[in-house]
Computed example of a mutant assay.
Amino acid sequence: MKIEILLDIKNRLGEGPLWDAESERLYWIDSLGCVAYRCTHDGREIRAWDLPDAIGSMAIRKDGNGAVVALRRGFHFLDFRTGDVDLIVDPEPDKPNNRLNDGKVDRRGRFIAGSMDTSEEGKNSGLYRLDPDLTLHKLDDGIIVSNGPCWSPDSKTFYFTDSWSGEIWAYDYDLETGNVSNRRTFTRLDTSTGGAADGSTVDAEGFVWNAQVYDGKLIRYAPDGTVDRVINMPVKKITSVMFGGPNLDVLYVTSMAIRHLPRFPHDPVERGALFAVRDLGVRGVPESRFGA
């Protein structure tokens, strides 16, 4: 195994690495810097799009010419050619202290993303599904910070976390309807060192990889929720993970350069970098595009 800095880009709050297998490009975001990025698998040909507000996640559209972006105040379309950003829908117009956060696309082209309380204290956030016909559906609520949505390779299980719950949850997922049910605890985290569950992905063997922010650990969980592998990263404030590269065998990891809240730890000069973890002996699963 080898950990390297792919780009020392000093993202304020790097998040959401997304490998688009069709174009063979890596996307990621700076949530508080209000920027979406793209590069090749080896960190070349960098492109950036300025956004009008904080961004929580993004998904590539079916035609590849744009994305759905989850901004502070709602889901928007981003046109890669012009940089234009257009509102689709704001799921929480009555909650000014919330913003949209982590999200991914299921294998039928639906975008699932949740919101978060910006003070990271109140259970007033929700989990939403944006369908290809642009209708919006609420899947769950009572959440502080939505994070880590991903699916098992057979799409029958949906994984998700409220970062401050100390747990990663599993739901039954109905791929035909996009509905979730039977929420249960997939695994409980050891939070004694201050860590919390952040972004997740699932590999081809059905194991869940989670970035444990403020603790600097990547943890691979077996399908039964037991810990299979722990990787210590060079920085504590890692935020999310995604397999990519031409062979889907590189684990890309984002991190943040700012402390975000005063109670969180400082990091060395590598803070805010985009990392690549190689030679893991594991491959990922291709991500889907949004179907509209």
Rank of each mutant, 00 (worst) to 15 (best):
Q212N: 13
W164Q: 09
S125T: 08
S119V: 00
L78G: 14
E92C: 10
P234S: 09
V202K: 00
A196F: 02
R73P: 13
R73S: 15
L261R: 15
R110A: 00
R188E: 13
S146C: 08
Y252V: 05
I112K: 03
G14P: 07
G245C: 11
I88A: 10
D117L: 01
N147Q: 15
F75M: 03
S146Y: 00
E205S: 12
S115Y: 11
E176W: 05
W209A: 02
I88H: 09
S115V: 15
W49R: 10
S115W: 11
F77M: 11
M242R: 15
Q212V: 11
L6C: 10
G166K: 14
D30N: 10
P93D: 10
P17W: 05
D8G: 09
Y27E: 13
M242N: 15
D249K: 03
Y214H: 09
T40A: 10
T239C: 15
D8A: 09
V282A: 00
E121T: 02
E121N: 09
E176A: 07
D106K: 01
T193Q: 14
V241L: 13
S200A: 00
N179V: 05
S152I: 00
A21H: 12
R12H: 10
D117W: 05
I46R: 14
F290S: 15
T254Y: 06
L87D: 12
P91K: 09
M58F: 06
V241G: 11
L274V: 06
K95L: 13
G245R: 07
M233W: 04
Y214K: 14
D154N: 05
H41I: 11
R72A: 03
L248R: 05
V269Y: 14
V241Y: 14
W49P: 13
L71K: 07
R289C: 00
L26V: 08
H41L: 12
P52G: 03
W151R: 00
K62I: 15
D279G: 06
E45T: 02
S200P: 11
K217C: 07
W19D: 03
A70T: 07
D102M: 07
P91I: 04
A257P: 08
D249H: 07
D215H: 13
I88Y: 04
E205H: 08
L78V: 14
Q212G: 12
M242F: 14
